[in-house]
Design a protein around this nucleic acid. Structure first.
Lengths: 184, 184
DNA sequence: GCCGTAAATTAGATTGGTTCTAAATATAAA
DNA sequence: TTTATATTTAGAACCAATCTAATTTACGGC
């Protein structure tokens, strides 16, 4: 997959940079850089999805046999407390994590539970600064979620309603620009 | 408690309006307005906190003996799927709900897990419209969380670091304006 | 490079919030 | 009223997440 970036982008690969940042944050907090923690960070840095703690453990256990459930959960909690990753929540599932703290918008579908990453950040930096000045709250990460219905589910909903009246109608919706869709 | 509002505010009491909106959304979805559901909506409409599903059940069971755990959980899930309430997540606790879908910012402290509601909405409406046009995603609720450290915890962190060097120093931080603090 | 110690990991048991199940009940329509 | 459907109920079951105590490891100081 070619990293087709439009504007500001470093020459270093994104996962490598993410990885370094994770380790840096652990180190700065005075925590030890154990092989297990490094493996977990590497996994988080390379994933493009929003894995649950359980998923991280399962997939990591495959490549790193012997790694403990407790270690994975502890490390994820630690990273969360450091603000390195952000806990996501959407219906009826387990705890999922956002490993990308670059300000962006999560479009969370109420119907199919799909999460779409939307880049095209509004003035969040300005907001963070305003909040800091007015309340003393120091932000380390942003989580901006729009909860609603994705294009497909929106159409399905409309179709369901229309079907009750007469016949299902066809409609067009714009192509997905500026956003990257993910299966959770 | 007097509702000291600064700018735009209806003459109707906020809880009453919230309550009507909940019932309206249930009705619009073709669901029955049972006494249990109405009690749950009333509870959600009147709370100023971010209750967990468990809390809702426990506190409701006190005033409505005989109400079932399953009913409370089912209704909360239904309201969430309708976008009437929004699931919040922050470390190591159970699922909490945001009952106020009026666009605002949740300041979530990584250290003490306190949630501060901050009103002073950034251009979220414009963002929602842009998202709809570009991706076809139809928003029904916004969740804007800033994860970080509240003023108190920030000072404590600084003190901890300073204490390791010499003596704890005193510092001042601005009063909390434009925001309402809550104990979860 | 080796030691000592506090930190981290491990395997497994445990917990407890949430969901599931089947039966009973209530609701709205015919 | 009768009927069909939706909802509620009580309690059992689930399972992700946490906890425990013992073992192992990382890393600054010697």
């Amino acid at each position: 997959m070619t990293t087709t970036s439009d504007s500001t982008k470093k020459t270093t690969s994104a996962p490598a940079e993410k990885y370094r940042r994770y380790l840096q944050m652990l180190k700065k907090a005075g925590l030890r850089l154990t092989p297990q923690r490094m493996a977990i960070c590497a996994y988080l840095a390379h994933t493009e999805r929003h894995p649950s703690a359980y998923q991280v453990y399962e997939e990591l256990a495959a490549t790193h046999p012997g790694i403990s459930r407790a270690t994975v959960y502890n490390t994820l909690n630690t990273l969360r407390e450091l603000g390195a990753i952000v806990e996501l929540s959407f219906g009826s599932d387990h705890t999922h994590y956002e490993t990308n703290t670059q300000p962006h918008v999560n479009l969370i579908c109420l119907r199919c539970h799909k999460i779409i990453d939307y880049y095209g950040d509004p003035g969040v930096d300005a907001l963070m600064e305003r909040v800091r000045q007015e309340t003393g709250f120091q932000s380390v990460a942003v989580k901006l979620d729009l909860v609603g219905f994705c294009a497909e589910c929106r159409l399905q909903r409309l179709d369901e309603i229309r079907a009750m009246l007469k016949t299902a109608a066809q409609d067009k919706f714009p192509q997905t620009r500026n956003s990257k869709e993910e299966i959770v």
